[in-house]
Design a protein around this nucleic acid. Structure first.
Lengths: 236, 236
DNA sequence: TTGGTTATGATAGTAATACTACTAGCATAC
DNA sequence: GTATGCTAGTAGTATTACTATCATAACCAA
């Protein structure tokens, strides 16, 4: 396990005041994750968060315009964090297939690389992403959010992965789709195994740890199948 | 194009009073779809719907406990409708590869089979499913919803598709995951092409129609790649 | 030390949301 | 012909999601 201290940069249009610069800001980040995990994003609100951290609604509104922005902040933090984990995991590697293995491992294993950010509980945040992450962009105002650059972190991660796919097979026609699919299938199948088991072939055994070998095999197989498939044979 | 009149059965735990049995009920269904499409599920509410149909909130509450239940109803209607379309599309077919092609066509093409239900606009409903369909189960109360059988329609569709995959390759290890992935990738890539184009290789050309050939090729290729991949070569 | 700026908190208020309790009209059945 | 039930409407309440104003404490510079 590597131990690093890397700062994670968030698009400053997302917040009104940088929460990492003050004690209250860090408390907002840390406790919003705990509370969203506990309540779900729908039942989470600034009043409950204020009570939890013994502060007030209006103080929280000084950092984030509303709960959607706070949610977007956390999502961006996660995908930036994941990008950095993958960056580290790929260091000094040349074999593209080995790179793919490392990428999938980074996506699955929380303990793979520890970056020790005291005001973010990565494991709890991961649970939120698995359950509700896609809500960040599945709504009516996705286009204005996108114009503000709220999804740059996710798109950058996707691009990074798709470039590795092209290293394996430069003629593969759907690198971006395969990358976004890998990210989504990874999380959705963790979620399905736990809550809707008929939608997956994965078996949930009490924790993510026990499932991670099967999940790795599934994702790696899926990726390899697509990248090594002869795409000419389809044109008939 | 086939023209049929099939009734779509919805789990009666989802509604308080069957909306298909009264005029008001049908107006609720028809106009909720239009309004959710226009506003998004977050900004949609029963007050706005009541105004639109010149009725009252409380009258709507007689049909559905809350907007989440109405949303679940529409989602179930859609997946049941899709199951029936696929059922029809597979009639008298024996070649499993041909079946897969028909399934993908049914998933993509709205005009493929017209069932003429006057109180549901299938095309608008499809847009809602693409944008917000996964929110039906991505929330904190998924387990109780699941216990009530709110996701049976989706699971049945998934099972139907996975059985066809096993016809092509009885040894394929991930039929359920591939089925749910097919359903999700289909919708997410339509959505990405329109709103987050860097997450897909599909090109959006003003309408779904113009994109459907590329989408078909992508989904069929992905499915075939997985089903024909030699899964033993991975165990090293 | 003073004076200004920043960070937070206290308090109150508003508009919208989500839901509930109660009432009224009408058809049909006994 | 009145009892019943089914339909739909009126009018509320509690909560949510903010917004606005003022107070105060900390800290920083002249």
């Amino acid at each position: 396990m590597k131990n690093l201290n890397v700062t994670i940069n968030i698009n400053d249009d997302i917040y009104l005041k940088d929460p990492t610069t003050t004690e209250l800001g860090k408390k907002i980040l840390f406790n919003s994750i705990i509370l969203i995990d506990k309540l779900g994003i729908e039942d989470f609100n600034f009043k409950k968060l204020a009570q939890r951290i013994s502060s007030t609604e209006s103080s929280i509104y000084r950092y984030f315009e509303n709960k959607h922005y706070l949610f977007i902040y956390l999502i961006n933090w996660y995908w930036n964090w994941m990008s950095i984990r993958i960056e580290i995991a790929l260091q000094n590697l040349t074999d593209p297939n080995e790179k793919i293995k490392r990428i999938i491992k980074a996506l699955i294993e929380n303990s793979f690389i520890n970056m020790d950010v005291p005001f973010i509980d990565e494991e709890v945040l991961h649970r939120i992403i698995v359950r509700e992450g896609t809500k960040a962009y599945h709504h009516k105002t996705v286009d204005t959010d996108n114009d503000y650059g709220f999804f740059l972190a996710y798109k950058a991660l996707c691009k990074k992965i798709s470039l590795v796919f092209l290293e394996v097979n430069p003629n593969y026609p759907y690198p971006k789709t395969l990358a976004s699919t890998l990210l989504e299938v990874c999380n959705s199948n963790i979620y399905f195994a736990k809550h809707l088991p008929r939608l997956t072939d994965l078996q949930f055994n009490n924790d993510l740890e026990g499932m991670s070998n099967d999940l790795f095999d599934m994702l790696y197989t899926m990726t390899q199948a697509n990248l090594t498939y002869d795409h000419k044979q389809n044109s008939e």
